[in-house]
């Protein structure tokens, strides 16, 4: 198995090659990289691949350094919620 098909986002099975080539092509930030590839948008909410996606964007020089912000936005819920529970919370 070679490095290009190496998976970075385990939930959505986004590969290293896909991330590096997207970052190169669009010269994008970590956040745009996430939206374009779906890396970090799966079941775990990006907890596992977040730092790797950020590093790829940084290594391409395409991530605008946001020293005072976390580059990949966090959105609720940070744990998957079942529809049943979602209903209960909104009551």
């Amino acid at each position: 198995m070679n490095e290009n098909v190496m998976i970075i986002c385990r939930c959505e099975e986004v590969t290293y090659h896909e991330l590096v080539s997207t970052a190169t092509k669009y010269k994008c930030s970590a956040r745009e990289l996430k939206l374009r590839t779906r890396a970090g948008m799966g079941y775990c909410g990006g907890r596992t691949c977040r730092t790797m996606v950020e590093k790829i964007a940084q290594s391409m020089g395409t991530n605008t350094p946001t020293e005072t912000n976390i580059s990949l936005k966090v959105q609720p819920p940070i744990r998957p919620v079942s529809f049943e529970n979602l209903g209960r919370i909104s009551k």
Binding site: R10, C11, E13, Y43, C44, R47, T48, P80
Partner: peptide, 22 residues
């Protein structure tokens, strides 16, 4: 097994962060 590719998965983080063991 991963939903799309069917690749086998096991525990990864073991403390509830990664959801690989669901």
């Amino acid at each position: 097994y991963q939903e799309e590719s069917g690749s086998p998965r096991g525990i990864y983080c073991n403390i509830g962060h990664c959801y690989e063991c669901r």
